[in-house]
C-alpha cells in the first residue's frame, strides 16, 4: 500500500501521515524516514518538535537526507515507511553544496529512489508540498526546483494506490481511498 499526501504547509500533513502509517503497520515495523538535514537553529527546533510529537507513536527514526532508497538497507522491507518529505529530499539532492551549481539529475534520482521504496516496501507513505498555485514570478533556480518537485509528485501519484490533498486538516481524495 502506497499513499502520497500533498497540500500546503501547516495543513496537518505530517500528523495525518503518522496516523496513516500507524494504521497501516499495526504490529509491524514502523519507520519515520527523516529527510531534512538541519541547517540552522530554526531547523533543529522544528526537528525536535517533530520528534516530540511522534514520541508515543512507535516509530524508529531513520535519517536519510540523500540517496533515499538507502533507508531500505537499514530497515525491514516488510515494514511501513513514512518519508517526510520529498521536498527536503529534493533540496538536498538538487543543491548539494552551497555555491556549487544545481544538480539537474536530482529529480530523476529522487524518482528512482522513491519508486524503489514504493515497489519493494510493504507500505510507504510519502509527504510532499504543494507549491504551484500562486502568482509569484520566481528566479530560474527556484522555478527549476518547482518543476522538479512537481515531476517527483506526478511520478509518485502515478505509482501510489492513494493520493490525498490536505486542506486545513481536511482530506481531499484524488485517487484510491482510505478504507484499509
Amino acid at each position: 500500500m502506497n499513499i502520497l499526501i500533498s497540500g500546503g504547509c501547516k495543513n496537518g500533513k505530517t500528523a495525518f501521515a503518522e496516523d496513516i502509517a500507524v494504521r497501516l503497520s499495526a504490529a509491524g515495523d514502523r519507520y519515520y524516514v527523516a529527510t531534512m538535514v538541519p541547517f540552522d537553529g530554526e531547523d533543529r527546533a522544528r526537528i525536535a518538535r517533530h520528534i516530540a510529537e511522534r514520541a508515543d507513536k512507535g516509530f524508529q527514526t531513520i535519517e536519510q537526507g540523500r540517496d533515499i532508497a538507502g533507508c531500505l538497507t537499514r530497515a525491514n522491507r516488510g515494514g511501513t515507511f513514512l518519508i517526510d518529505s520529498t521536498t527536503a529530499l529534493l533540496v538536498n539532492e538538487m543543491f548539494p553544496f552551497a555555491g556549487k551549481s544545481v544538480d539537474d539529475g536530482a529529480a530523476n534520482r529522487c524518482i528512482a529512489g522513491l519508486c524503489e521504496i514504493a515497489k519493494t516496501a510493504k507500505n510507504a507513505v510519502f509527504v510532499t508540498d504543494y507549491l504551484y498555485a500562486d502568482a509569484a514570478r520566481y528566479d530560474a533556480s527556484t522555478e527549476n526546483f518547482r518543476a522538479a518537485l512537481a515531476a517527483v509528485d506526478r511520478a509518485l501519484a502515478a505509482v501510489c494506490d492513494t493520493v490525498v490533498e490536505l486542506c486545513v486538516t481536511n482530506v481531499i481524495c484524488h485517487k484510491g481511498g482510505l478504507d484499509f
Binding site: G8, Y132, A133, D134, A135, A136, R137
Partner: peptide
C-alpha cells in the same frame, strides 16, 4: 489556465491586477 490564486497577495500592483 494556470491556478495563480493561492499565494500571498503580490507586492506589485500589476501582479495583483493580474490575479
Amino acid at each position: 489556465c494556470e491556478d495563480i490564486f493561492c499565494g500571498v497577495v503580490p507586492m506589485g500592483a500589476e501582479m495583483r491586477a493580474w490575479r
